[in-house]
Each structure stands twice: as C-alpha cells, then as structure tokens.
Design a protein around this nucleic acid. Sequence first.
DNA 1: AGATATTCCTGGAGGC
DNA 2: TGCCTCCAGGAATATC
Length: 277
Amino acid sequence: MPELPEVETTIRGLAPFLDGQRLTAVTTFRPDLRRPFPADLAQRLTGATVTGLSRRAKYGIVSTDRDDHMIFHLGMSGRWRIAPSEIEKHDHFILETEEATVLALNDARRFASLDLVETDDLANWPPFAALGPEPFDLDAHRLKAALAGRKAAIKLLLLDQRIVAGLGNIYACEALFRARISPKRLAGTLATKTGKATQKTKALVDSVKAVLEDAIKSGGSSLRDYKRADGSLGEFQHRFKVYGREGKPCARKGCGGTVRRIVQGGRSTFYCPTCQR
DNA sequence: AGATATTCCTGGAGGC
DNA sequence: TGCCTCCAGGAATATC
C-alpha cells in the first residue's frame, strides 16, 4: 500500500539511521526485483557516505557523496526494516552502516524496485521524467489545465502519475470523498470556466493535500504488509472515510448515504453516491 | 483518447 | 491445516 504518505514515513524513519552514515556493507539476495538491480550496485554503495534522504512521488531517494542516488519504490508490499534481529523471508537487500545498523528491504510480492542513478541523469531518468507535479506543488490552475477536455473518470486520472504524482488507490478515494466529488465524474467537467466547476477543482486540490498531510501525520496506513521502518504500524487506516467501508454509513454528518464499492480500471473504488457528485 | 485486459509475484481470506 | 478462487497498496504494456 505504499503510496506517498507511506514512502514519506519510511524516509523519515530511515533518515536517523542513514543520514551522514558511511555504508560499510551491501548485500543482495537476488539479482532483481521488478527490474534487475544495477550490476555495480554493491560496489558503488559500499564505502559511500549518505548525504541526504528525500522523496519524489512514491519513490524514496538515498543520496551519497559519490553523486549517486539510490532510488527505491516499494511497489505493493515493500518495506524497510531497521535493525532486524534476523534475516526474514523476502528480505532481498541489506545495507549496513558504520554504526553497524542493518537495514533490510523486504518485499513479498517483488513489485518493488531499486535503482542507482547519477545526479546528472536524475531529471532524465525515465521513471522520473514521466512524473507530474508533487501533490503539494499542485494548484487549481495547473490541475484544471491537466483535466481540461479529458473524458476519463476523475478517479482514474488521479491515479495517473503524469497528472499528479504520489496518489494511489486509497488516497485517491479519500481525496474525492473530502472534495465531495464522484469518482465517476468525467474529469473535463471539473475544468470548465464557470465558477462552480472551478471551485470543484480547487476543492479537489485542497482535499488531496489535506488527506496526504493527515496521513503523513498518522504515519501512513497499514493494511496488509506496510509497516514503518521501525516496525510500528501506521494509524491512518483507522481514519478512512470510504476506503474499505462498503455498505457502511457515510461518515459525513447529515448525509445518511451508504458507502458503495465499484470497479474502475480494474481496481476498487469506494465512495458515497449520496454526497459525492 | 480512452477503456480494458494482462503481466510481474506472494499471501491472506473465504468457500467447500 | 487441504484445495481452489479471488483479491490486494503499483505500474508498464498491449489491444481494440
């Protein structure tokens, strides 16, 4: 479930153990995850000092003093474990620091990725080159322009990382609920010139930011696999208003509707047909 | 452009 | 503690 808040939580959890640390040992237990690991991964990381950790969309970035950036994507089930007492099933990659802290990348479904990109290549690195703006950099004008004329359902476009980068299935559903917008609404109808639709675009931008900020404050959401790097669970799953709440009463005061589940683009969408229009 | 299906994987849940 | 089917946070790719 790692969407933007889970990756942000992971980066914040790793930073105290990695930032400024020299990497003393790098171990891979297999040659690939979603993609092959770089052949010189261990060689380039071993002995390097971490100069900073950051995030872009759902990618975590560990930068080193060799102008390298180790970039990970957690896929569906990836997580980092700090100082594990022993190696577990599905640990695929291990970093060890000068202070002897062990960090393990664990991923049952192996949809994660691990890449090493040089600074000069960052902007053109294909996974990054295709990304739209960070949600926190989004504004109503920009979103409106991206949605104008589009006939796809708004939910599907919120999942399109080229439109806005970092939302996944959960937070797309939750943001639409907060904005009172139906996930089935054709994206272009949010982008018309008349006041009401523009207000809807603004509401959506504000809702996207708010739900992500709240989720980060809660340490992300833990459903099946996700845990914070220190092993603790996120808390935001207790605050879902629609996700996973099919058949339950709408959380909006006075609405009285019932949360529905539909399928869009082959994935579950949860929403309240009564108050989301 | 858009809708849909498929693929990469493992594991948990639920039906029988 | 069996077998089978379905479903799951993502995203690239193919086809109509």
